[in-house]
């Protein structure tokens, strides 16, 4: 942005210089700024600083966190589930977004309403539904057994299968909605040209449509991956204590173990990964995310 303001016409630059530092426009931002600094930036920094000061000054918390197989397993679980959820959401989300972009408007509206409804339904209500659906005596197990697909009920709660299903359910709309926007903006003439040049449907998909939709897919995938890394509610309800993920670990350090040093260290790990992935996304796509590309 500094570059942009330098490039402004001269008269505007002079105007800007003549204004007092604390212009009225800046004063109007102060309430929001104070709120964010006092109740967001400062507490988060304070928490992170405790990771190197408690119990004594040093890196002992990070050594404990990265040196224990228990914690490494939690990092692995978090990473594994996030990758899985991202990939499944993309594989399902791409054809759905594609269909939404080209199907008759009226039907697209119906599907869109369902996507929005599922996205806006209370998170706990959705997670509760999956806890009931996936339990040993739940509908899914009963149906599968009734159809003779399985003889024993599948264990789908209190493990990572449940977490993956529940989280994919939550993340799908975050892939479908932006990707729909990206595909809609692709000019159909380009694909017509591909067909006229003799490309088969599969070649058009692989060489034209997928590359054109790729920016939207990468942007959506990065967002879903980052959101999954820090997810708390669904993993703790569907995963159980044996399959903890990073966000639960942070909460547990603070709430049950009252170990602020370790809590701060785990929070820093999560923050560093999250912010670097967002920086990557900003670099690739700018502030507007995938929708502008």
């Amino acid at each position: 942005m500094a570059m942009v303001s330098l490039a402004k016409p001269d008269n505007e630059k002079r105007n800007a210089r003549r204004r007092p530092v604390l212009s009225r426009d800046f004063v109007s931002i102060l309430p929001a700024l104070l709120l964010v600094l006092v109740f967001f930036v400062a507490p988060v920094l304070a928490l992170l600083s405790r990771s190197v000061t408690e119990p004594v000054f040093g890196l002992q918390n990070y050594i404990a966190l990265l040196g224990s197989s228990t914690y490494l397993k939690i990092f692995f679980n978090t990473f594994f589930v996030s990758v899985l959820v991202t990939v499944i959401s993309l594989v399902i989300g791409f054809p759905v977004a594609w269909t939404l972009a080209i199907m008759p408007q009226r039907w697209a509206m119906v599907v869109f309403a369902i996507v929005l409804l599922s996205m806006w339904t209370n998170l706990l209500a959705r997670t509760y539904a999956w806890m009931v659906l996936l339990q040993r005596t739940g509908v899914i197990n009963k149906t599968l057994m009734g159809m003779g697909v399985i003889d024993q009920p599948l264990t789908m709660v209190n493990n990572l299968i449940g977490v993956t299903i529940g989280m994919t359910y939550i993340m799908l709309p975050f892939i479908v909605i932006p990707l729909y926007g990206v595909i809609r903006k692709i000019d159909p003439a380009i694909l017509q040209a591909a067909a006229l040049c003799g490309a088969t449907r599969f070649q058009s998909l692989r060489l034209v449509l997928l590359p054109l939709a790729a920016p939207g897919m990468i942007a959506g995938a990065l967002m879903v991956f980052v959101m999954s890394l820090g997810y708390f509610v669904t993993p703790s309800l569907l995963g159980g204590t044996a399959n903890m993920m990073l966000a639960e670990l942070i909460a547990q350090f603070v709430q049950s173990l009252v170990n602020w040093g370790m809590g701060g260290a785990a929070a820093l790990v999560l923050l560093v990964v999250t912010l670097s992935l967002y920086a990557l996304q900003l670099r690739l796509f700018g502030l507007a995310g995938g929708e502008r590309t």
């Binding site: 967001f40 988060v44 304070a46 820090g230 708390f232 929070a267 999560l270 923050l271 999250t274 967002y278």
Partner: peptide, 11 residues
Amino acid sequence: ILPVVVLAVAL
């Protein structure tokens, strides 16, 4: 964009 659990613990 920040994981809400970090904000929750900090606050």
